[in-house]
Structure formats: C-alpha cells, structure tokens
Computed example of a mutant assay.
Amino acid sequence: MSKKLLSPLSLAWLTLMAAIACEIVGTSFMAVAARSGAYQGYLLMAGALALSYYLLSLALRAISVGVAYAVWEGLGLIGLTVVSVWLFGEKLVAQELLGLGLALLGLACVTLGETHDEVAA
C-alpha cells in the first residue's frame, strides 16, 4: 500500500503559495514594463498572471474560494509591497505598515476560521 506524501489540502496550500508567487512576479514585471516601456515585461507579466490564476483555480479544489482568494490577494499585496520596497526603493509610512499588519491579522483570522470535511481514505 502506498502512502501519500502530501494530503490534498497540503498540496492545495502549496499550489496557492505558488499562485501567490506568480502573482507577485507578474505584477512586478508590470511595474518594470510601465517604468521602462519594454514590452517584454508585459509579456512576462501576462504569462505569470495567467499561471497565477491557473494555480489559484487548482487550489480551489480543496480550499474554499473565499479563503483562497483572500489569502491570494492579501499575501500577494504584502509580498508585492516587500518587493516594491526592496527592488524599486519605495518607502512606507507608519499608516501603510499598520494597514499591512491589519491585513495579515485578517488573513490569519479568515484562514483559521476555515473548516474542512474529513476526506475518506
């Protein structure tokens, strides 16, 4: 009898994290393309965002749409903010940091509130 390495739920969360990474990459390329005018950035943006939506749709097989979308958007927002500060030299004020912290707290509440039906083995 073979034992699964990852449960369907664990695999869904890993897929969601990959979707978030693709969203951050795609939106970062959008910023690069908008600032430089290079159309290659728009092509990379479109590909990364399309992959992000595809991976998000796969994650929805085991994670409820509301929770998955909230986590995708929220962690994408926080990740993109980190990228914009790190790569693009943007500055954050205290109010923005507070808002990001509250968003993270909200994501934790939404995620911890999700329930899952037991899957038959």
Rank of each mutant, 00 (worst) to 15 (best):
L104I: 11
L43S: 05
V82A: 11
A68T: 08
G101F: 10
K3Y: 15
I63T: 03
A19Q: 05
A31D: 13
I24F: 06
S36D: 04
Y54C: 04
L112H: 12
V119E: 13
A12F: 02
Q40C: 02
S10D: 15
V32S: 01
L49K: 03
T115A: 05
A68L: 03
A121N: 07
V83R: 01
L5E: 11
V67I: 14
M1F: 11
A70Y: 05
L6C: 05
L92E: 02
G47K: 06
A46Q: 07
S28L: 07
L14R: 09
L55I: 02
W72L: 03
R61P: 01
C109L: 15
L104M: 14
V119T: 14
H116L: 11
S2F: 07
C22V: 07
L60S: 02
G26L: 06
T81Y: 11
L112I: 11
W13R: 08
V82C: 05
E118M: 14
E73Y: 10
M30C: 09
V110C: 07
A48E: 02
A31Y: 08
C109D: 00
V110W: 00
A120K: 14
G66K: 04
L14D: 00
L75G: 01
L55A: 07
L97W: 12
K91V: 14
Y39L: 12
A103G: 06
A120I: 15
Y53K: 04
L75T: 01
A103W: 00
V71E: 00
L58S: 00
K3F: 12
A46F: 11
G41K: 03
L16Y: 02
Q40P: 03
V65L: 09
Y54T: 11
T81D: 04
V67T: 15
S57W: 00
L102M: 10
D117P: 09
W13V: 13
K91L: 10
Y53L: 15
A48M: 04
I20A: 08
M1V: 06
T111G: 10
L87N: 08
A70N: 00
Q95T: 11
G74S: 06
L16F: 14
S2C: 07
G41I: 09
G101H: 06
A121Y: 14
Q40H: 11
A68F: 01
A19C: 13
V119N: 10
T81P: 04
Y39P: 01
T15F: 00
G76C: 04
G89W: 12
L107K: 00
Y54Q: 12
A108Y: 11
A18M: 14
T15Y: 00
A18Y: 04
A70Q: 04
L43I: 15
K91S: 12
M1H: 05
A21T: 15
A34V: 09
C109K: 03
S28M: 08
Q40L: 13
